[in-house]
């Protein structure tokens, strides 16, 4: 079973629907005692970094997530991925979950349009990484105005080019993140979610199991 942390932000509905389509048991909950029973945890998120951290602190979720990630797979999506890092510059410097090294910054003004919205091509650094192994990582759906800047390039599983190098899939140990929305990224996105679920529930990746039937 895969948990989806409901902390008052984020499009829980679409992530839960995606799991349902994959035939995976999903548990949307704000109760740590229930989420403790899950095999893997998804941290969704749409909105502002500071608001999200305030909510996580208010409900005592920060320590819970940090502890969970030591033992079982954790996947942050969009803002959820940004929260995994040290800090963010959004609305004043705010401390994050500090599970991965890096800082969240706003896209520079005067360059490309902000938000970075739409389908961008993934540049894969680690094709053998469990989340994307066996998958054709082509395009993914992004919507964000802030991006992760990290010195530690070994975290980067895939990036996207938007004037600057945008970390798109990151991971270390049991901690993973996608800046894009896998639940909105077609067949590839669903397969990535499927991989996370397989990794969580069985510890190994068998194969891509979701196929959009082509006409």
């Amino acid at each position: 079973m895969i948990g989806i942390l409901d902390y008052g932000m984020g499009n829980l509905h679409s992530v839960a629907s995606a799991l349902k389509r994959l035939g995976v048991d999903g548990l949307v909950s704000s109760k740590q005692s229930h989420l403790e029973e899950t095999d893997g945890l998804i941290l969704p998120g749409v909105g502002a970094f500071k608001d999200a951290m305030n909510l996580l602190h208010a409900d005592g979720h920060v320590e819970f997530i940090k502890d969970y990630a030591k033992r079982k797979p954790l996947l942050g999506i969009c803002l959820g991925m940004q929260l995994l890092f040290n800090e963010s510059e959004e609305h004043g410097l705010t401390e994050g979950l500090e599970l991965l090294p890096g800082r969240v910054r706003r896209f520079p003004a005067g360059g490309y349009k902000v938000p970075h919205m739409g389908w961008n091509e993934l540049i894969v650094y680690q094709p053998q990484a469990p989340l994307i192994k066996h998958l054709k990582a082509d395009y993914a759906y992004f919507v964000h105005s802030y991006y992760v800047e990290t010195e530690d390039k070994s975290l980067l599983i895939a990036t996207a080019d938007y004037g600057i190098e945008v970390p798109a899939i990151v991971g270390r140990g049991k901690v993973f993140g996608t800046q894009f929305h896998p639940e909105k990224s077609g067949e590839f996105g669903l397969n990535l979610l499927s991989h996370f679920c397989q990794l969580s529930e069985r510890g190994v990746i068998y194969d891509a199991i979701y196929h959009l039937s082509r006409h």
Binding site: H13, V143, K184
Partner: peptide, 8 residues
């Protein structure tokens, strides 16, 4: 639609 669609 939201339950079935995998694009925005």
């Amino acid at each position: 639609v939201a339950e079935q669609l995998s694009i925005p």
